[in-house]
Design a protein around this nucleic acid. Sequence first.
RNA 1: GGUCCCUUCGUCUAGCGGUCUAGGACGUCGCCCUUUCACGGCGAAAACACGGGUUCGAUUCCCGUAGGGAUCACCA
Length: 495
Amino acid sequence: MTTRPNFLRLSALDISTMGASQPAPDSKVVTRFAPSPTGFLHIGGARTALFNYLFARHHGGAFRLRIEDTDRARSTDAAIAAILDGMTWLGLDWDGDVVYQFARAARHAEVAHDLLARGHAYRCYATAEELTALREAQRAAKQPMRYDGRWRDRTDWPEDQPHVIRLKAPREGSVTITDLVQGPVTVANAELDDMVLLRSDGTPTYMLAVVVDDHDMGVSHVIRGDDHLNNAFRQLAMIRLLGWPEPHYAHIPLIHGTDGAKLSKRHGALGVDAYRDELGLLPEAVENYLLRLGWGHGDAEIISRAEATEWFGLEAVGRGPSRFDLKKLENINGHYMRAADDARLVALIAPRVVTALGRELTAADNDLLQRSMPELKKRSPNLNDLALGALFYLRSRPIPMDDGAAKLLASATPGVLAGAYARLAGVTDWSTATLEEQVRALADEFGLKLGQAAQPLRAAVTGSSQSPGLFDVMETLGRDETLGRIDDVITGRAG
RNA sequence: GGUCCCUUCGUCUAGCGGUCUAGGACGUCGCCCUUUCACGGCGAAAACACGGGUUCGAUUCCCGUAGGGAUCACCA
Protein backbone atom coordinates (compact mmCIF):
# COMPACT_ATOMS: atom_id res chain seq x y z
CA MET A 1 0.00 0.00 0.00
CA THR A 2 1.40 3.34 -0.96
CA THR A 3 1.36 6.44 1.13
CA ARG A 4 -0.02 9.66 -0.08
CA PRO A 5 2.17 12.71 -0.23
CA ASN A 6 2.11 14.89 2.84
CA PHE A 7 1.52 18.07 0.92
CA LEU A 8 -1.91 16.74 0.09
CA ARG A 9 -3.03 16.87 3.66
CA LEU A 10 -1.32 20.16 4.21
CA SER A 11 -3.00 21.79 1.28
CA ALA A 12 -6.35 20.43 2.34
CA LEU A 13 -5.77 21.93 5.76
CA ASP A 14 -4.75 25.24 4.26
CA ILE A 15 -7.88 25.41 2.20
CA SER A 16 -10.17 24.74 5.12
CA THR A 17 -8.49 27.28 7.35
CA MET A 18 -7.99 29.92 4.75
CA GLY A 19 -11.56 31.04 4.46
CA ALA A 20 -13.20 32.74 1.55
CA SER A 21 -10.84 35.68 1.46
CA GLN A 22 -8.04 33.61 0.05
CA PRO A 23 -8.87 32.48 -3.48
CA ALA A 24 -5.50 33.19 -5.03
CA PRO A 25 -3.71 29.84 -4.56
CA ASP A 26 -6.54 27.96 -6.25
CA SER A 27 -7.33 30.35 -9.03
CA LYS A 28 -5.18 28.54 -11.53
CA VAL A 29 -6.94 25.23 -11.22
CA VAL A 30 -8.06 24.00 -14.63
CA THR A 31 -9.50 20.54 -15.18
CA ARG A 32 -10.94 18.94 -18.23
CA PHE A 33 -13.10 16.10 -19.35
CA ALA A 34 -11.85 14.64 -22.62
CA PRO A 35 -14.09 11.88 -24.00
CA SER A 36 -13.62 10.35 -27.40
CA PRO A 37 -16.84 10.50 -29.43
CA THR A 38 -17.00 6.85 -30.37
CA GLY A 39 -20.17 6.14 -28.41
CA PHE A 40 -22.55 7.52 -25.82
CA LEU A 41 -21.52 9.13 -22.56
CA HIS A 42 -21.42 6.12 -20.30
CA ILE A 43 -21.63 5.98 -16.55
CA GLY A 44 -17.88 5.82 -15.99
CA GLY A 45 -17.26 8.80 -18.20
CA ALA A 46 -20.00 10.70 -16.43
CA ARG A 47 -18.31 10.11 -13.09
CA THR A 48 -14.96 11.23 -14.43
CA ALA A 49 -16.64 14.36 -15.73
CA LEU A 50 -18.34 14.92 -12.38
CA PHE A 51 -15.09 14.61 -10.42
CA ASN A 52 -13.36 17.02 -12.77
CA TYR A 53 -16.27 19.42 -12.50
CA LEU A 54 -16.43 19.28 -8.71
CA PHE A 55 -12.68 19.63 -8.29
CA ALA A 56 -12.60 22.72 -10.49
CA ARG A 57 -15.62 24.29 -8.82
CA HIS A 58 -14.32 23.53 -5.35
CA HIS A 59 -11.15 25.43 -6.14
CA GLY A 60 -12.88 28.16 -8.04
CA GLY A 61 -11.10 27.05 -11.18
CA ALA A 62 -12.20 26.23 -14.67
CA PHE A 63 -13.71 23.03 -16.04
CA ARG A 64 -13.16 22.49 -19.74
CA LEU A 65 -14.56 20.04 -22.25
CA ARG A 66 -12.51 18.60 -25.06
CA ILE A 67 -13.72 16.15 -27.66
CA GLU A 68 -10.94 13.76 -28.65
CA ASP A 69 -11.93 13.08 -32.20
CA THR A 70 -8.55 12.34 -33.75
CA ASP A 71 -9.71 8.86 -34.64
CA ARG A 72 -11.62 9.91 -37.74
CA ALA A 73 -12.85 6.45 -38.52
CA ARG A 74 -14.61 5.93 -35.21
CA SER A 75 -15.72 9.42 -34.25
CA THR A 76 -19.29 10.37 -35.05
CA ASP A 77 -21.38 13.50 -34.78
CA ALA A 78 -24.11 11.50 -33.12
CA ALA A 79 -21.71 10.54 -30.35
CA ILE A 80 -20.64 14.14 -29.89
CA ALA A 81 -24.27 15.17 -29.60
CA ALA A 82 -24.94 12.39 -27.10
CA ILE A 83 -22.00 13.45 -24.94
CA LEU A 84 -22.98 17.11 -24.92
CA ASP A 85 -26.57 16.13 -24.22
CA GLY A 86 -25.54 13.92 -21.32
CA MET A 87 -23.33 16.61 -19.81
CA THR A 88 -26.13 19.12 -20.05
CA TRP A 89 -28.64 16.76 -18.52
CA LEU A 90 -26.36 16.19 -15.55
CA GLY A 91 -25.83 19.91 -15.19
CA LEU A 92 -22.09 19.62 -15.72
CA ASP A 93 -21.64 22.97 -17.38
CA TRP A 94 -18.20 23.55 -18.80
CA ASP A 95 -16.24 26.76 -19.15
CA GLY A 96 -15.36 28.25 -22.51
CA ASP A 97 -15.88 26.64 -25.86
CA VAL A 98 -15.70 22.94 -26.50
CA VAL A 99 -12.29 22.09 -27.92
CA TYR A 100 -12.31 19.72 -30.85
CA GLN A 101 -9.00 17.98 -30.94
CA PHE A 102 -8.93 17.17 -34.62
CA ALA A 103 -9.16 20.85 -35.47
CA ARG A 104 -5.83 21.32 -33.74
CA ALA A 105 -3.94 18.77 -35.81
CA ALA A 106 -1.65 21.40 -37.33
CA ARG A 107 -0.53 22.56 -33.89
CA HIS A 108 0.12 18.96 -32.85
CA ALA A 109 2.24 18.40 -35.93
CA GLU A 110 4.10 21.61 -35.24
CA VAL A 111 5.09 20.38 -31.79
CA ALA A 112 6.17 17.03 -33.19
CA HIS A 113 8.37 18.70 -35.78
CA ASP A 114 9.83 20.95 -33.14
CA LEU A 115 10.75 17.87 -31.14
CA LEU A 116 12.24 16.36 -34.28
CA ALA A 117 14.28 19.45 -35.01
CA ARG A 118 15.67 19.47 -31.49
CA GLY A 119 16.67 15.82 -31.68
CA HIS A 120 14.01 14.64 -29.22
CA ALA A 121 12.14 12.70 -31.83
CA TYR A 122 13.10 10.72 -34.90
CA ARG A 123 11.80 9.27 -38.13
CA CYS A 124 10.89 5.61 -38.09
CA TYR A 125 10.44 3.80 -41.38
CA ALA A 126 9.44 0.45 -39.92
CA THR A 127 6.38 -0.94 -41.71
CA ALA A 128 3.30 -2.30 -40.01
CA GLU A 129 4.23 -5.81 -41.15
CA GLU A 130 7.72 -5.39 -39.77
CA LEU A 131 6.34 -4.26 -36.41
CA THR A 132 3.87 -7.11 -36.30
CA ALA A 133 6.67 -9.57 -36.97
CA LEU A 134 8.70 -7.97 -34.20
CA ARG A 135 5.88 -8.44 -31.72
CA GLU A 136 5.35 -12.02 -32.82
CA ALA A 137 9.00 -12.77 -32.22
CA GLN A 138 8.94 -11.07 -28.84
CA ARG A 139 5.90 -12.97 -27.77
CA ALA A 140 7.38 -16.27 -28.93
CA ALA A 141 10.53 -15.51 -26.96
CA LYS A 142 8.37 -14.45 -24.00
CA GLN A 143 9.95 -11.03 -24.16
CA PRO A 144 7.99 -7.91 -23.33
CA MET A 145 6.35 -6.60 -26.46
CA ARG A 146 7.55 -3.14 -27.33
CA TYR A 147 9.20 -1.23 -30.12
CA ASP A 148 12.93 -1.92 -30.16
CA GLY A 149 14.09 1.50 -31.32
CA ARG A 150 15.55 0.22 -34.58
CA TRP A 151 15.37 3.64 -36.24
CA ARG A 152 16.26 5.60 -33.14
CA ASP A 153 19.79 6.46 -34.18
CA ARG A 154 19.71 5.96 -37.92
CA THR A 155 19.98 8.75 -40.43
CA ASP A 156 20.01 6.73 -43.66
CA TRP A 157 16.42 7.73 -44.36
CA PRO A 158 15.01 6.26 -47.55
CA GLU A 159 13.70 8.76 -50.12
CA ASP A 160 9.95 9.22 -50.36
CA GLN A 161 9.15 6.40 -47.99
CA PRO A 162 6.25 6.71 -45.53
CA HIS A 163 7.43 7.10 -41.98
CA VAL A 164 6.16 8.01 -38.55
CA ILE A 165 7.69 10.35 -36.01
CA ARG A 166 8.56 8.73 -32.72
CA LEU A 167 9.51 10.31 -29.45
CA LYS A 168 13.14 9.71 -28.45
CA ALA A 169 12.30 8.84 -24.85
CA PRO A 170 14.99 8.45 -22.22
CA ARG A 171 16.10 4.83 -21.75
CA GLU A 172 17.91 5.15 -18.44
CA GLY A 173 16.47 5.94 -15.05
CA SER A 174 12.86 6.04 -14.06
CA VAL A 175 9.87 8.33 -13.80
CA THR A 176 7.86 8.86 -10.65
CA ILE A 177 4.41 10.34 -10.72
CA THR A 178 2.98 11.60 -7.48
CA ASP A 179 -0.57 10.74 -8.31
CA LEU A 180 -3.11 12.60 -6.20
CA VAL A 181 -5.21 9.47 -5.83
CA GLN A 182 -2.80 6.58 -6.22
CA GLY A 183 0.19 8.09 -4.45
CA PRO A 184 3.72 7.91 -5.80
CA VAL A 185 4.10 5.46 -8.68
CA THR A 186 7.43 4.72 -10.30
CA VAL A 187 8.16 3.09 -13.63
CA ALA A 188 11.59 2.42 -15.14
CA ASN A 189 12.18 4.14 -18.46
CA ALA A 190 13.39 0.83 -19.82
CA GLU A 191 9.77 -0.33 -19.62
CA LEU A 192 8.61 2.41 -21.93
CA ASP A 193 9.17 2.34 -25.67
CA ASP A 194 9.31 5.19 -28.14
CA MET A 195 5.72 6.10 -28.85
CA VAL A 196 4.47 7.31 -32.17
CA LEU A 197 3.77 11.04 -32.27
CA LEU A 198 2.79 11.51 -35.89
CA ARG A 199 1.36 8.75 -38.04
CA SER A 200 2.70 8.12 -41.50
CA ASP A 201 -0.15 10.15 -42.93
CA GLY A 202 0.98 13.08 -40.82
CA THR A 203 -1.93 13.02 -38.36
CA PRO A 204 -1.21 13.21 -34.63
CA THR A 205 -1.73 10.32 -32.26
CA TYR A 206 -3.71 10.62 -29.05
CA MET A 207 -0.51 10.59 -27.00
CA LEU A 208 0.78 13.70 -28.71
CA ALA A 209 -2.58 15.42 -28.85
CA VAL A 210 -3.43 15.13 -25.14
CA VAL A 211 -0.09 16.49 -24.06
CA VAL A 212 -0.23 19.44 -26.43
CA ASP A 213 -3.87 20.25 -25.76
CA ASP A 214 -3.59 19.94 -22.00
CA HIS A 215 -0.64 22.30 -22.11
CA ASP A 216 -2.27 24.79 -24.45
CA MET A 217 -5.47 24.77 -22.44
CA GLY A 218 -3.56 25.37 -19.24
CA VAL A 219 -4.80 22.19 -17.60
CA SER A 220 -3.38 22.03 -14.07
CA HIS A 221 -4.96 18.77 -12.93
CA VAL A 222 -5.42 15.77 -15.14
CA ILE A 223 -8.19 13.74 -13.53
CA ARG A 224 -9.08 10.65 -15.54
CA GLY A 225 -9.71 6.93 -15.44
CA ASP A 226 -7.22 4.52 -13.97
CA ASP A 227 -6.78 2.98 -17.40
CA HIS A 228 -4.65 5.98 -18.35
CA LEU A 229 -2.16 5.62 -15.53
CA ASN A 230 0.34 3.79 -17.71
CA ASN A 231 0.05 6.47 -20.36
CA ALA A 232 0.94 9.16 -17.88
CA PHE A 233 4.57 8.07 -17.74
CA ARG A 234 5.11 8.34 -21.45
CA GLN A 235 3.27 11.63 -21.56
CA LEU A 236 5.38 12.99 -18.75
CA ALA A 237 8.52 11.98 -20.63
CA MET A 238 7.33 14.06 -23.57
CA ILE A 239 6.41 17.00 -21.36
CA ARG A 240 9.89 17.01 -19.86
CA LEU A 241 11.54 16.90 -23.26
CA LEU A 242 9.34 19.80 -24.26
CA GLY A 243 10.28 21.66 -21.12
CA TRP A 244 6.65 22.36 -20.28
CA PRO A 245 5.20 22.62 -16.76
CA GLU A 246 4.04 19.28 -15.41
CA PRO A 247 0.36 18.91 -14.52
CA HIS A 248 -0.84 17.15 -11.40
CA TYR A 249 -2.27 13.72 -12.09
CA ALA A 250 -5.17 11.93 -10.45
CA HIS A 251 -6.17 8.52 -11.77
CA ILE A 252 -9.51 7.40 -10.44
CA PRO A 253 -10.45 3.72 -10.30
CA LEU A 254 -12.82 2.30 -12.86
CA ILE A 255 -16.40 1.27 -12.27
CA HIS A 256 -17.17 -2.42 -12.53
CA GLY A 257 -20.41 -4.25 -13.20
CA THR A 258 -22.35 -6.11 -10.52
CA ASP A 259 -20.32 -9.22 -11.22
CA GLY A 260 -17.02 -7.46 -10.72
CA ALA A 261 -16.09 -7.47 -14.38
CA LYS A 262 -15.16 -4.29 -16.14
CA LEU A 263 -18.15 -2.27 -17.25
CA SER A 264 -18.16 -2.15 -21.02
CA LYS A 265 -20.68 -1.16 -23.63
CA ARG A 266 -21.94 -4.66 -24.06
CA HIS A 267 -21.73 -5.38 -20.36
CA GLY A 268 -24.00 -3.23 -18.29
CA ALA A 269 -22.67 0.15 -19.27
CA LEU A 270 -25.56 2.23 -20.49
CA GLY A 271 -25.46 5.71 -21.86
CA VAL A 272 -26.67 8.37 -19.46
CA ASP A 273 -29.58 8.89 -21.83
CA ALA A 274 -30.73 5.39 -20.97
CA TYR A 275 -30.74 6.24 -17.27
CA ARG A 276 -32.94 9.19 -18.11
CA ASP A 277 -35.24 7.70 -20.76
CA GLU A 278 -35.36 3.99 -20.06
CA LEU A 279 -34.87 3.82 -16.31
CA GLY A 280 -36.61 7.12 -15.67
CA LEU A 281 -34.07 8.50 -13.24
CA LEU A 282 -33.51 12.06 -12.10
CA PRO A 283 -30.15 13.68 -12.94
CA GLU A 284 -29.51 14.77 -9.36
CA ALA A 285 -29.96 11.16 -8.24
CA VAL A 286 -27.51 9.85 -10.82
CA GLU A 287 -25.06 12.53 -9.80
CA ASN A 288 -25.43 11.75 -6.10
CA TYR A 289 -24.96 8.04 -6.72
CA LEU A 290 -21.94 8.55 -8.94
CA LEU A 291 -20.40 10.87 -6.39
CA ARG A 292 -20.64 8.21 -3.69
CA LEU A 293 -19.12 5.60 -5.95
CA GLY A 294 -15.46 5.86 -5.07
CA TRP A 295 -15.74 8.88 -2.85
CA GLY A 296 -17.12 9.44 0.61
CA HIS A 297 -17.54 12.16 3.18
CA GLY A 298 -18.13 10.62 6.58
CA ASP A 299 -21.64 9.22 6.84
CA ALA A 300 -23.11 11.58 4.26
CA GLU A 301 -25.30 9.81 1.71
CA ILE A 302 -27.69 12.36 0.29
CA ILE A 303 -25.45 15.14 -0.88
CA SER A 304 -26.51 18.28 -2.69
CA ARG A 305 -24.52 19.89 -5.47
CA ALA A 306 -23.57 22.71 -3.11
CA GLU A 307 -22.34 20.31 -0.45
CA ALA A 308 -20.49 18.23 -3.01
CA THR A 309 -18.73 21.32 -4.30
CA GLU A 310 -17.77 22.31 -0.79
CA TRP A 311 -16.60 18.88 0.31
CA PHE A 312 -15.08 17.30 -2.76
CA GLY A 313 -11.41 16.54 -2.75
CA LEU A 314 -9.12 14.05 -4.43
CA GLU A 315 -7.69 12.85 -1.12
CA ALA A 316 -10.98 11.15 -0.32
CA VAL A 317 -11.24 9.27 -3.59
CA GLY A 318 -10.92 5.52 -3.07
CA ARG A 319 -8.25 3.55 -4.83
CA GLY A 320 -10.02 0.32 -5.58
CA PRO A 321 -12.57 -0.19 -8.35
CA SER A 322 -16.20 -0.14 -7.25
CA ARG A 323 -19.19 -2.07 -8.46
CA PHE A 324 -22.24 -0.53 -9.98
CA ASP A 325 -25.36 -1.17 -7.85
CA LEU A 326 -28.64 -0.33 -9.55
CA LYS A 327 -30.62 -1.02 -6.36
CA LYS A 328 -28.87 1.73 -4.51
CA LEU A 329 -29.18 4.11 -7.43
CA GLU A 330 -32.94 3.48 -7.46
CA ASN A 331 -33.15 4.04 -3.74
CA ILE A 332 -31.41 7.37 -4.04
CA ASN A 333 -33.62 8.21 -6.97
CA GLY A 334 -36.67 7.50 -4.82
CA HIS A 335 -35.38 9.99 -2.33
CA TYR A 336 -35.04 12.70 -4.95
CA MET A 337 -38.43 11.81 -6.44
CA ARG A 338 -40.09 12.49 -3.11
CA ALA A 339 -38.25 15.76 -2.83
CA ALA A 340 -38.95 16.85 -6.39
CA ASP A 341 -41.30 19.63 -7.34
CA ASP A 342 -44.76 18.40 -8.39
CA ALA A 343 -44.99 20.46 -11.56
CA ARG A 344 -41.57 19.26 -12.66
CA LEU A 345 -42.60 15.64 -12.16
CA VAL A 346 -45.80 16.15 -14.10
CA ALA A 347 -43.81 17.56 -17.01
CA LEU A 348 -41.35 14.69 -16.86
CA ILE A 349 -43.95 11.93 -16.92
CA ALA A 350 -46.25 13.63 -19.45
CA PRO A 351 -44.66 12.00 -22.54
CA ARG A 352 -44.87 8.58 -20.93
CA VAL A 353 -48.47 9.13 -19.91
CA VAL A 354 -49.42 10.31 -23.38
CA THR A 355 -47.91 7.21 -24.91
CA ALA A 356 -49.67 4.88 -22.49
CA LEU A 357 -53.01 6.65 -22.86
CA GLY A 358 -52.78 7.11 -26.60
CA ARG A 359 -54.04 10.66 -26.44
CA GLU A 360 -52.87 14.15 -25.61
CA LEU A 361 -53.40 15.57 -22.16
CA THR A 362 -56.06 18.17 -21.48
CA ALA A 363 -55.78 21.00 -19.01
CA ALA A 364 -58.00 18.99 -16.69
CA ASP A 365 -55.66 16.02 -17.00
CA ASN A 366 -52.69 18.13 -16.07
CA ASP A 367 -54.55 19.54 -13.12
CA LEU A 368 -55.44 16.04 -11.96
CA LEU A 369 -51.83 14.95 -12.34
CA GLN A 370 -50.60 17.95 -10.44
CA ARG A 371 -52.94 17.27 -7.54
CA SER A 372 -52.11 13.57 -7.44
CA MET A 373 -48.33 14.09 -7.30
CA PRO A 374 -47.88 14.55 -3.54
CA GLU A 375 -49.26 11.08 -2.86
CA LEU A 376 -48.01 9.42 -6.03
CA LYS A 377 -44.37 10.43 -5.78
CA LYS A 378 -44.04 8.92 -2.34
CA ARG A 379 -44.40 5.44 -3.79
CA SER A 380 -42.52 5.70 -7.07
CA PRO A 381 -38.83 4.85 -7.30
CA ASN A 382 -38.59 6.23 -10.83
CA LEU A 383 -40.44 8.17 -13.52
CA ASN A 384 -41.66 5.02 -15.25
CA ASP A 385 -43.44 3.77 -12.16
CA LEU A 386 -44.73 7.23 -11.43
CA ALA A 387 -46.29 7.49 -14.88
CA LEU A 388 -47.77 4.01 -14.57
CA GLY A 389 -49.19 4.80 -11.16
CA ALA A 390 -50.79 7.98 -12.41
CA LEU A 391 -52.65 6.39 -15.29
CA PHE A 392 -55.77 5.39 -13.41
CA TYR A 393 -56.56 9.00 -12.58
CA LEU A 394 -56.82 9.82 -16.27
CA ARG A 395 -58.60 6.80 -17.67
CA SER A 396 -62.07 7.28 -19.09
CA ARG A 397 -64.96 5.40 -17.55
CA PRO A 398 -65.54 2.62 -17.34
CA ILE A 399 -61.96 2.07 -16.22
CA PRO A 400 -60.30 -1.33 -16.68
CA MET A 401 -59.86 -3.62 -13.69
CA ASP A 402 -56.59 -5.48 -13.19
CA ASP A 403 -56.43 -8.99 -11.74
CA GLY A 404 -56.01 -7.80 -8.17
CA ALA A 405 -59.01 -5.51 -8.47
CA ALA A 406 -61.14 -8.19 -10.08
CA LYS A 407 -60.32 -10.55 -7.23
CA LEU A 408 -61.22 -7.97 -4.60
CA LEU A 409 -64.51 -7.25 -6.29
CA ALA A 410 -65.36 -10.92 -6.64
CA SER A 411 -64.85 -11.57 -2.95
CA ALA A 412 -66.44 -8.36 -1.73
CA THR A 413 -69.28 -8.55 0.74
CA PRO A 414 -72.49 -8.27 -1.26
CA GLY A 415 -74.00 -4.84 -1.05
CA VAL A 416 -71.00 -2.91 0.27
CA LEU A 417 -70.48 -1.04 -2.97
CA ALA A 418 -74.15 -0.10 -3.23
CA GLY A 419 -74.06 0.91 0.43
CA ALA A 420 -70.99 2.99 -0.19
CA TYR A 421 -72.57 4.67 -3.16
CA ALA A 422 -75.61 5.62 -1.14
CA ARG A 423 -73.56 7.07 1.69
CA LEU A 424 -71.05 8.90 -0.54
CA ALA A 425 -73.77 10.30 -2.74
CA GLY A 426 -75.08 12.08 0.30
CA VAL A 427 -71.78 13.71 1.14
CA THR A 428 -71.76 17.43 0.55
CA ASP A 429 -68.35 18.16 2.02
CA TRP A 430 -66.14 16.10 -0.33
CA SER A 431 -63.03 15.94 1.84
CA THR A 432 -60.81 13.09 3.00
CA ALA A 433 -62.00 13.46 6.57
CA THR A 434 -65.69 13.22 5.70
CA LEU A 435 -65.07 10.45 3.19
CA GLU A 436 -63.22 8.39 5.76
CA GLU A 437 -65.96 9.02 8.29
CA GLN A 438 -68.56 7.68 5.88
CA VAL A 439 -66.60 4.59 4.88
CA ARG A 440 -65.91 3.77 8.52
CA ALA A 441 -69.59 4.08 9.24
CA LEU A 442 -70.26 1.83 6.27
CA ALA A 443 -67.90 -0.82 7.62
CA ASP A 444 -69.67 -0.68 10.99
CA GLU A 445 -73.03 -0.99 9.31
CA PHE A 446 -71.95 -4.17 7.53
CA GLY A 447 -70.00 -5.47 10.52
CA LEU A 448 -66.78 -5.35 8.56
CA LYS A 449 -63.28 -4.21 9.26
CA LEU A 450 -62.36 -0.99 7.54
CA GLY A 451 -60.17 -2.83 5.05
CA GLN A 452 -62.98 -5.10 3.96
CA ALA A 453 -64.98 -2.08 2.95
CA ALA A 454 -62.11 0.02 1.67
CA GLN A 455 -60.47 -2.56 -0.57
CA PRO A 456 -63.45 -3.22 -2.86
CA LEU A 457 -63.93 0.52 -3.05
CA ARG A 458 -60.29 0.98 -3.97
CA ALA A 459 -60.72 -1.58 -6.72
CA ALA A 460 -63.78 0.16 -8.09
CA VAL A 461 -62.23 3.61 -7.95
CA THR A 462 -58.69 2.82 -9.11
CA GLY A 463 -59.05 -0.47 -11.00
CA SER A 464 -56.22 -1.84 -8.88
CA SER A 465 -55.52 -3.37 -5.49
CA GLN A 466 -52.71 -0.92 -4.89
CA SER A 467 -52.93 2.83 -4.91
CA PRO A 468 -52.35 5.92 -2.81
CA GLY A 469 -54.63 6.34 0.19
CA LEU A 470 -58.23 5.68 -0.87
CA PHE A 471 -59.64 8.90 0.55
CA ASP A 472 -56.91 10.97 -1.05
CA VAL A 473 -57.71 9.34 -4.37
CA MET A 474 -61.43 9.98 -4.02
CA GLU A 475 -60.86 13.58 -3.08
CA THR A 476 -58.50 14.16 -6.00
CA LEU A 477 -60.82 12.42 -8.45
CA GLY A 478 -63.77 14.44 -7.28
CA ARG A 479 -67.32 13.54 -6.42
CA ASP A 480 -68.76 12.87 -9.85
CA GLU A 481 -65.91 10.74 -11.16
CA THR A 482 -65.69 8.73 -7.95
CA LEU A 483 -69.40 8.05 -7.78
CA GLY A 484 -69.48 7.25 -11.47
CA ARG A 485 -66.72 4.68 -11.17
CA ILE A 486 -68.43 2.97 -8.26
CA ASP A 487 -71.67 2.93 -10.18
CA ASP A 488 -69.91 1.40 -13.18
CA VAL A 489 -68.97 -1.60 -11.08
CA ILE A 490 -72.36 -1.92 -9.38
CA THR A 491 -74.13 -1.89 -12.72
CA GLY A 492 -71.64 -4.19 -14.37
CA ARG A 493 -70.27 -1.69 -16.85
CA ALA A 494 -66.82 -2.25 -15.40
CA GLY A 495 -65.08 -5.13 -13.68
C1' G B 1 3.65 -13.23 -19.89
C1' G B 2 6.15 -8.00 -18.59
C1' U B 3 4.93 -3.52 -16.00
C1' C B 4 1.68 -0.88 -12.81
C1' C B 5 -2.48 -0.54 -9.43
C1' C B 6 -6.03 -2.41 -5.86
C1' U B 7 -8.02 -5.55 -1.36
C1' U B 8 -13.13 -3.26 5.59
C1' C B 9 -20.28 -6.48 5.88
C1' G B 10 -23.43 -9.29 -0.58
C1' U B 11 -22.67 -3.83 -2.53
C1' C B 12 -21.00 1.57 -1.76
C1' U B 13 -18.20 3.31 2.10
C1' A B 14 -16.35 5.56 7.50
C1' G B 15 -11.83 4.49 9.78
C1' C B 16 -5.79 8.07 8.60
C1' G B 17 -1.64 3.19 15.77
C1' G B 18 -4.98 2.78 21.23
C1' U B 19 -11.95 6.03 20.73
C1' C B 20 -13.16 -0.90 17.06
C1' U B 21 -17.26 -5.46 21.56
C1' A B 22 -15.23 -1.84 13.48
C1' G B 23 -19.76 3.19 12.28
C1' G B 24 -23.30 4.66 8.18
C1' A B 25 -26.05 3.59 3.62
C1' C B 26 -28.29 0.10 -0.10
C1' G B 27 -29.94 -4.80 -0.19
C1' U B 28 -31.85 -8.97 3.02
C1' C B 29 -34.84 -10.62 7.37
C1' G B 30 -38.16 -9.42 11.65
C1' C B 31 -41.41 -5.99 14.22
C1' C B 32 -44.30 -1.35 14.41
C1' C B 33 -47.43 2.21 11.75
C1' U B 34 -51.68 1.02 8.49
C1' U B 35 -57.70 0.84 4.17
C1' U B 36 -53.74 -1.67 -0.13
C1' C B 37 -48.89 -0.38 -1.96
C1' A B 38 -45.27 2.66 -0.65
C1' C B 39 -43.16 6.15 2.88
C1' G B 40 -41.64 6.33 7.84
C1' G B 41 -39.91 4.22 12.71
C1' C B 42 -37.43 0.27 15.50
C1' G B 43 -34.39 -4.05 15.48
C1' A B 44 -31.38 -8.34 13.50
C1' A B 45 -27.89 -11.11 10.60
C1' A B 46 -23.56 -9.46 7.87
C1' A B 47 -16.68 -7.35 6.92
C1' C B 48 -10.99 -5.71 8.53
C1' A B 49 -8.33 -11.76 2.19
C1' C B 50 -4.04 -14.76 4.34
C1' G B 51 0.99 -15.06 6.46
C1' G B 52 5.06 -12.66 8.45
C1' G B 53 7.18 -8.47 10.59
C1' U B 54 7.60 -3.05 13.08
C1' U B 55 5.40 -1.45 17.78
C1' C B 56 3.82 -1.55 24.61
C1' G B 57 -0.31 -1.91 21.04
C1' A B 58 -2.32 -3.03 14.54
C1' U B 59 -8.24 -2.47 10.49
C1' U B 60 -4.65 1.46 10.40
C1' C B 61 2.83 1.18 8.93
C1' C B 62 6.39 -2.45 6.11
C1' C B 63 7.27 -7.17 3.36
C1' G B 64 5.46 -11.50 1.15
C1' U B 65 1.28 -14.85 -0.63
C1' A B 66 -3.41 -15.22 -2.76
C1' G B 67 -7.22 -12.91 -5.40
C1' G B 68 -8.96 -8.88 -8.51
C1' G B 69 -8.03 -4.96 -12.02
C1' A B 70 -5.46 -1.85 -15.71
C1' U B 71 -2.08 -1.60 -19.60
C1' C B 72 1.40 -3.36 -23.22
C1' A B 73 -1.37 -0.22 -31.42
C1' C B 74 0.55 4.35 -36.86
C1' C B 75 -7.29 3.42 -30.83
C1' A B 76 -8.40 6.88 -27.54
